[in-house]
């Protein structure tokens, strides 16, 4: 992929930042969002040297994806900056309360907040960016999932059910819009050494975890191929476990 317009939510840290870097280095125009302006600033300045050679560019938008009032302005601003959006990566995500509680000890308000960030945010942003994709008959939407969407890990309840919902959302989008040129995937990136991982499991051995930059490079290959074949009117697999997409990248 080169010279594409790309929106990555939660692009100021972890996997989102690594993906932004990889896409910019490959000559793409990337908008990243995040809540903390300082983190966004740092991300932007960290990326500059690579920019100049590749022809790619990075733009930041301060936005909380869990808020309806911030999703729609973000979509408009991103389209204004990029001209067109080819690829949307719904990557920003909330674990909910940490330490992770049992469901029986959790509050419904916390569940609500997790769903706002992990399901409603991606739904709204996708909806806001779809018109351009449908009119051009071209686009790829990536929803970042997790193995917690499939395995019922105790204490990962809010997060796990939100990711399961996001997986299913991806399948239904895909079903409804088959043959319209817009493709959907849900991807479990696998366990990575990021803030989210250590917030969930503080004593996790970093040696068991992937480096998000390596994951981003592999995902770049996988997504480039997927984007290339987006118009194929077959019944493509929508959800990919960490092993499944790795096998194809």
């Amino acid at each position: 992929m080169k010279n594409k317009g790309i929106v990555i939510t939660g692009g100021s840290a972890g996997l989102g930042l690594a993906l932004a870097k990889t896409f910019v280095e490959n000559g793409n125009h990337v908008v990243i969002t995040g809540r903390d302006p300082k983190k966004l600033e740092a991300a932007a300045s960290g990326l500059l040297p690579a920019d100049s050679n590749s022809g790619g560019s990075l733009h930041t938008i301060e936005a909380d994806i869990s808020q309806k009032a911030s999703v729609y302005p973000t979509a408009l601003e991103a389209q204004g900056v990029l001209g067109k959006v080819d690829l949307l990566i719904n990557n920003a995500s909330s674990l909910g309360k940490t330490p992770l509680p049992l469901l029986v000890d959790s509050d419904c308000e916390d569940l609500e907040q997790v769903l706002q960030t992990n399901v409603l945010g991606p739904f709204r942003l996708t909806k806001a960016l779809l018109p351009g994709m449908l009119l051009r008959k071209s686009g790829l939407v990536v929803n970042m999932s997790s193995d917690a969407a499939v395995s019922a890990y105790p204490q990962w309840g809010h997060y796990g059910l939100s990711k399961a919902a996001l997986d299913h959302l991806s399948r239904i989008w895909n079903e409804e819009l088959r043959g319209k040129g817009v493709d959907f995937v849900a991807i479990d990136p696998g366990d990575m050494a990021t803030a989210l991982q250590f917030a969930a499991i503080p004593d996790r051995d970093p040696n068991e975890l992937s480096d998000p930059e390596e994951v981003a490079r592999a995902l770049f290959r996988f997504l480039s191929a997927r984007f290339q074949n987006r118009a194929e009117n077959t019944r493509p697999q929508v959800r990919f476990s960490a092993d499944a997409w790795r096998a194809q990248s």
Binding site: A69, Y72, L76, E77, Q79, G80, K84, A128, P131, L135
Partner: peptide, 14 residues
Amino acid sequence: LELWDVQTPFATQP
């Protein structure tokens, strides 16, 4: 009117 109230199903270029 909120921003989403004034977008059409084709809203792309701001």
